[in-house]
Design a protein around this nucleic acid. Structure first.
Lengths: 336, 336
DNA sequence: TTGAAAGCGGTACCAG
DNA sequence: CTGGTACCGCTTTCAA
């Protein structure tokens, strides 16, 4: 079913069909009506490849690291909503933290000639930035970007967030903590882990043990197991994000450790699930709404705000998974 | 950057560039090398719109009802993996259970001339099937499809799953239960709720109260609140899926009810999270791997298996969120 | 207000 | 093995 067939059916020229479909310039109401009727009758659906070729596509790309983590889904949904009202459609890609897949996804987006691109990823491939600058596609990175002529970057101030978290734990008496991070954080970009190390470093009597796993429930559980094996004396487990914290929680429960009575646990991101776990997770809120808003502004708004960096300041959220340190002896008096 | 420019740079014709890029027929190694070099130097990225127009696109569409529910994400990932090895890329869409958005998404896919389509949705718009048949796009529906000349349908046997679940609860002594369903199930398609009603109907002394909410954690929590308000005497809460069950769990905890001691809770789908909640959820396993496999077979495999229905039989998974009914009196003796 | 026609950037067939 | 060329289906001037 092509535009031409519709045109013939409506006794007009293809150009007129195009005009009606795009609401561009004036078309006599008679012709318009005939076209609309023809479109319905023939169930005509314009070929978007052709449209994209001739016009220029009204779609933007969104690339995330891990769709299994609700944090990314939240951002995706925020962009989706913005795209909807701006009349864009979204092309989504998931990299699974693989730099190769990131590069492949970016290429795919470039190939589709997207009008804009948002990459909410932790991994990065050097050279990608250059490629993006080459194609002059308005882009918003999160964390891993370097502002460029047409590239904006959203930087989450993990450092600040971790400082708040560590200060809080320190005030509760914790002096030996474990960190459950991403495997991805073993690479060059590992902001969260570095933030923890730096924050811990500012307390002379605070020490941290580190383990890493995948960004999944299982990964969190396994990393918790590792960090506990390395040092059974830790009184708190700091997790790189909430999803992994949920996994850690499970590991602790299986070992008969009560949270926060015997050991404290913290998440990061403050996804919805953090409120629904038992106990609800103390976490650090990163506003997905704000990230989504920034992305939408830049991708769908007037092309004015170029080359800049946005900083997001995370907020500590206290819930029930953290508590004061108790002496080890007390632990054995528990009823359950 | 166009093919022609690359051709000029490599001192060959555009046709040869195309041949090199698609590995079609033979090209002298000299020319090939020059083309590859030119592509690299110019950072050439073929315009996929043009390619899709001239050739035919190698992409398939995947439409799901709710990306916030890991159930759908699991299926998406299964298809993503299959698409990767088959050399297809995926165009994803999320409907949020809106029939209008489903129609819009399908149109979008048709417009992109996808090679195949998988719609894992609970909502449906009559006429959509006809439209799909019109365009002869190989399609796989889940639940809501009607097998047609090029449409396959995967039917999850909710009835069987709910029967097992109800039989199990009945055997534990439950006689008054609540059902927490989707709002979406209030529409014409509400398999899970019907399955519950039918299963309950086969026991003369079993009664069920019903409430519905969104397919979210909050929705589950709210629906649980409603169903408990309607009948505080229920001894079990059957949830339409695990995500909602997690929400229900939270509501019960807030009320000081212990699961399963005071009240039992069941989920459905058996998503990963069901194993990580406290207590882990008794659920009914629906294999996303199997659904993903069927989709991949049909969309990426040889186009042989047409117009058929696949039935998935769910399996009961017992965990700790269900237990025998205790007399109401006992409830007050709880320590905590 | 409408139609004709020139691209948009590839693919694929055909001749050389 | 390679270049020329006719489309693919739509948008967008440019005239009429």
């Amino acid at each position: 079913m092509t535009q031409e067939q519709v045109a013939r059916h409506a006794r007009v020229s293809p150009a007129t069909v195009s005009r009606v479909l795009n609401n561009t310039c004036a078309v006599s109401s008679g012709a318009r009506a005939r076209v609309i009727k023809a479109v319905e009758e023939l169930r005509y659906s314009p070929n978007l490849h052709a449209r994209g070729l001739a016009g220029g596509s009204r779609s933007v790309g969104v690339i995330v690291s891990n769709f299994e983590n609700p944090f990314f889904v939240d951002i995706y949904k925020a962009v989706e909503a913005g795209a909807g009202i701006a009349g864009f459609d979204i092309i989504m890609a998931n990299t699974g933290y693989s730099p190769e897949r990131l590069t492949a996804s970016v290429r795919l987006m470039i190939g589709r000639r997207v009008a804009g691109l948002a990459a909410i990823v932790s991994e990065m491939d050097p050279g990608l930035i250059a490629e993006l600058n080459e194609y002059r596609i308005p882009t918003v990175f999160c964390d891993v970007g370097t502002p460029g002529s047409n590239i904006a970057n959203i930087r989450v101030n993990y450092r600040r967030g971790m400082e708040k978290l560590i200060a809080y734990l320190y005030s509760l008496g914790h002096r030996r903590v474990g960190f459950v991070g991403h495997h991805a954080t073993l690479g060059p970009i590992n902001e969260r882990q570095r933030a923890v190390l730096d924050a811990v470093g500012s307390y002379s009597d605070l020490r941290v043990d580190i383990a890493a796993g995948d960004d999944t429930l299982e990964g969190g559980r396994r990393a918790a197991r590792v960090v506990l094996a390395a040092n059974p004396a830790i009184t708190a487990v700091i997790c790189a994000n909430d999803l992994m914290a949920l996994g850690a929680l499970r590991e602790l429960r299986d070992r008969g450790l009560r949270v926060p009575h015997d050991i404290s646990v913290t998440g990061f991101d403050n996804i919805k699930l953090a409120q629904f776990s038992d106990p609800p997770l103390t976490s650090v809120h990163i506003s997905r709404e704000e990230i989504g808003r920034i992305i939408c502004d830049r991708l769908f708004g007037p092309a004015t705000l170029l080359e800049r960096e946005f900083v997001i300041d995370p907020e500590l959220v206290l819930r029930d998974s953290t508590g004061p340190v108790r002496s080890r002896g007390v632990k054995n008096t528990r009823v359950h």
